[in-house]
Amino acid sequence: MDLKGSLVDTNLRIFPSNNLLDYIKTLPINNDVPINIARLVKGKTYEAKSKHDLDEEVKIPVHLNSKDVENLNKIKAVIKIDDKAEDIVEEEPETEKEPVTAEKKEEIPITAEKTEEEGTDKDSLNKDSEKDDSMEKSMEIEEDEVEDELYLTTSDIDWLYTHLQNQKKKGTENVPYLHTLLEGSDIKTPRNQRIKRNPVLEARCVKLRAQQEAREYRKMTKSVDNVRLRFPEDTISYQMKQLNRQLIAIGQFLISIFAGFLFGFRGVEWMVGNLDFGFRLLLGVMCALVIALAEIYFLAKKLNEELNIPETTQLGGPPKFADGRHNNYEYEPKVPSKAIDKEHQD
């Protein structure tokens, strides 16, 4: 029942292959080298001596210029021709293909808000949660393992690319290409953080759900239970209360109509000055009529309502938390089934 949190940082983690590691180890380590690369060489505990500003670095833009696009088109044409000549129909699938550089793409699930499962089958729910638990555990272990390893980020690769380009410009021989270095490296997408459900909340949810179910059950079985069949409706207090409610509603209706009539009959006269008696009567009746029309709607609504008395009997649900047994923050999955059993004995 754990929720998945949103991603916190969206940086890719690149776990270098041995090939790349070997190359990185030949790099001279100074303060210009990004910390992740330096750590790969010097070990985990390496700290940069001076704070290095990555922004100041002159980055070679990775945008394809027009010449690149031209070359791409040429290569495209060549490859197409080759394919035709050799009659190899290699249709590129629409879906993502595993690139040859062994880039592992994992689908990042968009964390939708998980709606709370309201399963009535408690056994299967428990099994599910057990399964989830085991899966989570294995995933956690995996994550822990991953945490221990050193990795590069995209900005490090950027730096590496710039470095390689600079080397080439200086005329150093045998400068490897970035794609050959990256071959075989693992690229991992960051994982969602798992948010543990608060056990207190969980216990409370279980309790509330059990109570809700018990209430529904009582309502359902009311017509077959001899004891409760006539219970609230046949008591005098229930009848009195019902009577009271309806009398009050009618009283309010009458008072507001009378007030409306008075307004038309006297109020208007006080405001405007002397008026004819017949006209005043007409005004009063009209006001009262308008108000009555509006009031009838509310009266009908009110009289239509059923009086429901909240049940005073103890409903099912796990025992209160006051007894200290639940204060040790342990989720007990057996509680709901117990609660329902109890309800049936009622």
Binding site: L7, V62, N71, I75, Y161
Partner: peptide
């Protein structure tokens, strides 16, 4: 030339992956 092009595209791919996550 092709290799350099490939370098650029690989690098761009990395950036695009991050952008997609964002």
């Amino acid at each position: 030339e092709a290799s350099e092009l490939l370098d650029k595209i690989v690098l761009k791919q990395l950036h695009l992956m991050e952008e997609k996550m964002r």
